[in-house]
Nucleic acid binder design. Structure first.
Lengths: 355, 355
DNA sequence: CTGAAAGCGCTTACAG
DNA sequence: CTGAAAGCGCTTACAG
């Protein structure tokens, strides 16, 4: 098999030039005569030449391959949509993305470390990573040690300016908008199912009450904390959570569930418990996941603009890669949007609640 | 940035040997004295050595990177679960998987072609690809031209033996099992929403009726054909299809929807049309997608065993890669299983309908 | 049992 | 404007 690929040498022989000249001509070096540039280009096309990525990688030290590192990549619809968006924006710059999924039981670290240390990645995206997680922390250290540029997309309220490239996702603002929406619809007792390592959601929740001038009854009490969930524990955990919600006193009329992975199972679980949604219980989530549109009722959600996120992160990362470490760390924020569907009782009239 | 990585040379200097010896020692070459093997191994560990993947790729011609090529990879929950399974099985053999998504509007071909032609991939998985699709066809030709070994996982009833490595997924059998399940539950008018390029589903559908000794009324008539669906057309198409289903005369009591991507939207659409599920309309799908478990009602489905599929495909592919084209094409089949949930009216008692 | 050398296919100073 | 040469970091016949 492994047919002979065409190399620079083949082209050089065909046009009667040296491989150095061919190499330069192909990358459009202005030093090379326009006529020979053209001649070489045609020959390359005729032989359907493609540079060997490994040879190029070996000499330039830029493999043009970016890694997306995150926990439970394939487990989360949101992360997968991000991967697709990153891919698209990377392709615009002639880069490629390899999705690397790390699980909470440590899978991933030893799988991707050889590639990372072996110089496979020109740069790394960290998506929504939690410094509280030991595995991710190890990985981010390894990335730094390997001297590979990276950009992190997550909520970093206390991040010192310039510590690393950062696309900030504002969880507090997401919570604020979500709870504001519920308050406007008349809800007063809103339970929060919050990831334990993310105080931002709770803060935003309180902020919304404050801004609306409404007193939040027993906020701590309405706050259900949940950690990492294994894939096969999803329904079991959802049932536990819905039980907890229903035991709350007074019983909440609405639920804010930032963890998108829980939304479907939790909705299902509440219906099984005999509730009519959204009348007996409104629900709002974060992240814009396609499936939200045909859950019953469709889920209203507050989300970052995934494409803006991808564009911003890719631009930063590619710039950092091409600056070879000369560039200072940058940071940017990505806006949040409210996508109204039906799970909160509002009619999904286009844009009605958009502000 | 780009800190100096440790190379063979560093180790060689440390232990006072040549890089050839170090290289051999590290791969456990028996020719090398056990004592020096150990000494070298320790030095490598101390310097946390990892071979540069590009240098290795350049000289061995095996990059250990596999590509998963399929249409709408990130769009389909099933494909994503396959990607995760392929990754895991590839890691066992020390290979890596890069998911390459091709869309029907041609996105993907020009994105991945440079990598393919550039020698990036040691092998390729084709998942469920349709030879009727021009883009995929081009890609598969390119893979052959590049001399890259591949394995295809799809239904290939008429595939000449040994044309290429094949893991056969039996769509006809899936349809047979699905319809058999519905017939056992008493349904007699079953509509089929079938991908236009897959006559196997229709054949399996007829076979189930035949085996049950039940006359299928107007089979052609109950068959709704559907092609590739763009991501943003999902709900629109689902509404069209549910309208067509409800206009069928006599009206079907059950629906077989092999395309998993349609299942949720279609269920949603039928409910919006006022039907109670599963009483007014039973529904069965193919592929085992996690989300099916918390749709309302949860979807009963017939699926290949994804992990068996991954194991089989990876073994074939890696063997082909390492045989460097010496190996003859192999072929294998992957079993189908019925996963009973509630969308057909059967109670989801564990294993009750399992055979 | 170990080493010197060539080669994988590119890029990039350095000459001319 | 073009070319000869060194180098990226590995592997692998070929000697010894």
């Amino acid at each position: 098999m492994a047919r002979q690929k065409t190399t620079l040498k083949d082209i050089a022989e065909l046009v009667g030039l040296s491989i150095s000249t061919v190499s330069r001509a192909l990358k459009g070096d202005k030093e090379i005569a326009a006529a020979t540039r053209e001649r070489v280009g045609k020959a390359a096309e005729r032989l359907s030449y493609q540079p060997n990525v490994f040879a190029r990688g070996l000499s330039t030290k830029n493999t043009r391959i970016l890694a997306l590192l995150t926990q439970g990549l394939h487990f989360s619809a949101f992360y997968r949509e991000c991967l697709a968006a990153f891919e698209t924006s990377a392709h615009h710059r002639n880069y490629y993305v390899l999705g690397c999924s790390v699980t909470q039981d440590g899978y991933g670290l030893q799988e991707y470390l050889p590639l990372l240390r072996g110089g496979m990645f020109a740069g790394v995206y960290f998506l929504d990573y939690s410094f509280n997680d030991a595995g991710m922390l190890d990985l981010s250290r390894e990335v730094e040690n390997a001297g590979v540029p990276y950009v992190a997309a997550y909520d970093a309220p206390d991040q010192p300016q310039g510590a690393h490239n950062l696309v900030r996702v504002d969880f507090g603002e997401q919570a604020r908008q979500a709870v504001e929406h519920l308050l406007k619809l008349g809800h007063r007792h809103i339970a929060l199912v919050t990831p334990w390592a993310r105080p931002q959601f709770f803060n935003g929740y309180l902020r919304a009450y404050g801004e609306a001038g409404i007193v939040c009854q027993k906020p701590e009490h309405s706050c259900i904390r949940v950690g990492v969930i294994a894939e096969d524990q999803l329904m079991v955990r959802a049932d536990e959570i819905s039980r907890q919600v229903l035991e709350l006193e007074p019983r909440p009329t609405a639920l804010f569930v930032p963890k998108a992975i829980l939304t479907g199972p939790l909705q299902f679980s509440l219906k099984r418990a005999g509730l009519t949604l959204p009348d007996d219980m409104a629900m709002i989530s974060t992240k814009n996941v396609r499936e939200f549109g045909y859950l019953d009722p469709p889920i209203t959600s507050v989300s970052v603009d995934i494409h803006a996120l991808a564009e911003t992160a890719t631009e930063m990362l590619v710039d950092a890669v091409e600056a070879k470490g000369e560039a200072a760390a940058r940071s940017a924020a990505v806006p949040t949007e409210l996508i109204i569907r039906e799970s909160c009782g509002a009619q999904a009239h286009a844009g009605r609640w958009k502000s």
